[in-house]
């Protein structure tokens, strides 16, 4: 019966917090095992009963469908991450623009030092972090 638990865990691997996931995996596994037992009791061979149950079970989306609040929260989170990414990107361009402009216009005043690269590379961490958060929440 271990193949059932593996199958369910695999379906849920990208969703839910660890605590919620554990409970859900347990309950889904149990219900599936009960179905397999029902099928065996009514005369289906064990291997076939397991295969049939897993085939008919459904996908990760079918599980998420049972939690409308969670999918709504996910959409909201994705939306927030998107605005954060956009904001950080625009702010990065603005900061770099100012740095480049000031540095190049008053190059003599700064003794010919091109410090704009420090700003351009240094501030890059911001949109990069936001990009990372955006991509991980999209998974």
């Amino acid at each position: 019966m271990n193949s059932i638990k593996k199958f369910v865990s695999n379906l849920l691997k990208d969703y839910f917090s660890d605590q919620d996931k554990k409970e859900l995996i347990d309950i889904l596994t149990l219900s599936l095992e009960e179905k397999v037992e029902d099928l065996i009791e009514s005369g289906t061979p064990k291997e076939e009963a397991i295969k049939l149950s897993l085939q008919e079970f459904g996908s990760a989306e079918d599980i998420l469908e049972a939690f409308p609040d969670k999918t709504k929260n996910r959409k909201r989170l994705l939306h927030t991450r998107k605005s954060q990414l956009l904001f950080s990107g625009l702010a990065y361009l603005l900061i770099c623009g100012i740095a480049i402009f000031v540095n190049l216009t008053f190059l003599d005043f700064f003794g010919g030092i091109l410090w704009l690269f420090v700003v351009v590379i240094g501030v890059l961490f911001w949109p990069l972090v936001m990009l990372y958060l955006f991509l991980t929440s999209k998974e």
């Binding site: 599936l32 459904g58 079918d62 599980i63 469908e65």
Partner: peptide
Amino acid sequence: IKEATLYSVVSRLEA
């Protein structure tokens, strides 16, 4: 109804 959905709803109702 997909059993995946059904059992998940049951677990939500129990929670």
